Simulated scan of single mutants.
Amino acid sequence: MVHPRPSRRTLLRSGAALAALALTDGCSSDSGGAEPPGPSGTASGAAPSAGPAAATMPAESRPHTRTFMAWPALEEVWGDQLPGVRQDIAGLAQTIAGFEPVVLLARPDQADQARQACGSTVEVIELMVDDLWVRDTGPTFVTGPKGLVGIDFNFNGWGNKQTHANDSQVARNLLDHYGIARVRAAITGEGGGIEVDGEGTLMATESSWVNDNRNPGRTRDQIEESFKELLGVEKVLWFKGVAGQDITDCHIDALTRFAEPGTAVLHRPAADTPPDIWSTASDQALQVLKSATDAKGRTLKVVEIPEPDFDLIQGSGKNFLATYINYYVCNGGVIVPRFGDRAADDHAVGIIGDLHPGRKVTQVTINHIAAGGGGIHCATQQQPAIGS
């Protein structure tokens, strides 16, 4: 859930935004001459489309082979925040590396700096990136009879809002690096815009998918059919979300997540927060969750996690993303943000720990990342283990 003020890098320089528009054409990603998405969701030379009978997207809680992250590259995006953001990324990568292998993508001329910052527990590979949000720029993985397949959702800078000449190619280049089959989706969007329970249910916001800045002319039903074909899901729970107020148009992974099949965690405003568009979006999501059933016919249990008190957070500005549900589940652990409101931080950790028994809950301070409007989940992407 985004903060009630403009969020997720709305501090973008006008020059960067204009550059993004110049680099892209409609909802097609800047691919340097690559083929456009095909009607079946495949690309020339890519793997066959991954449908429900072929492959499914595992829940994040299933075993991982590794976690991918990315080294933020551009001063034009972060300005004087860049050193602090890199410090947060290094700390986050080192923490996750205590649970499972971490591979950090970095530009060739920045790779040595990334290695020095992250240390020997984090593998750094040289691959051109623009920013750190690998949840959105990297592939979304599915598994099935043919093994591991990466879905390329045609990243276009969250609807042409940010420079992404390199980030639009991260999914393709990363899959090529590891020799993993690639499916190019017939729709445009981001990994942070989808949430699955691993048992056939997917959640998404209309604002970040049924939006002309990604999918002009496509209906919600058409996008839903693509989800079912690509990710092997059977039911989609849609939330209205909020369009045009943050760079992601209200990604689902900052609004509500599955803690496990049948249980959803929901971001809620702090006590005494005046009503606004974001609290309205949370209220609407609560009503959807309370009345919904999942793909297995279960009524959902809803667990609410309130945001911290912004007056107690050092460095929180108008773009700060203060949601605890943007956490990351890795092998044996859960990585949760620490914002500086001790009472709220402890309350959130207690709830999340109870929801993920048997995993070690680790808090990480990410206030520089959060000041740019993102979180731990946004900065990570899991590669599921085959057969998990």
Rank of each mutant, 00 (worst) to 15 (best):
Y328F: 05
T263D: 07
T299V: 11
D176F: 10
D167V: 11
G41F: 03
V183L: 12
P39H: 07
A204H: 03
E206N: 10
W209A: 00
L18N: 13
G315E: 07
T256G: 10
G32I: 01
D354P: 08
R214N: 12
T163F: 13
S49W: 07
A185F: 03
G45F: 05
G91H: 06
A343F: 11
A111T: 07
G179V: 00
L18S: 13
L312S: 08
C250I: 10
P63I: 11
A322C: 05
W133A: 00
E225C: 04
V183N: 07
A46F: 15
A19T: 11
L82H: 01
D276V: 06
N166C: 14
N211F: 05
G32C: 05
G262N: 02
K240F: 07
P48S: 07
G262R: 02
A271K: 15
E307R: 15
A254M: 15
P63C: 10
H164M: 13
A243M: 12
L132F: 15
D249E: 13
P357I: 08
R257F: 12
A53I: 08
A292Q: 02
G217V: 00
L231I: 12
A271N: 11
L175Q: 08
P216L: 06
I386N: 09
K228S: 03
W71Q: 01
K301E: 15
T137C: 01
A285Q: 04
R5G: 13
M203P: 01
Q110S: 14
G332H: 04
E76G: 09
P52N: 09
N213F: 12
H3F: 14
A47Q: 01
I247V: 14
A285S: 06
A117R: 00
V129K: 01
A54V: 13
C27L: 09
A54N: 10
R338M: 13
V134D: 00
S28G: 12
R338K: 14
F339T: 03
G33M: 05
S279P: 04
V288L: 03
V329H: 03
P58S: 09
W209G: 00
T42C: 09
T256Y: 10
V303R: 04
S279Y: 06
G179R: 02
A186H: 05
W133D: 00
M1D: 13
N213A: 15
E126C: 04
A70E: 06
M128T: 13
T188P: 03
V210N: 05
H251S: 08
N211T: 05
H251M: 10
G198N: 08
P39K: 06
G41W: 02
A22N: 13
L132G: 07
A348K: 02
T219Q: 04
E76I: 13
R182S: 07
S291K: 11
T143E: 06
T163M: 15
T201V: 06
I96L: 10
V142H: 01
H377T: 07
V85C: 00
T65V: 15
G262A: 06
E195C: 07
D272L: 11
P48Q: 06
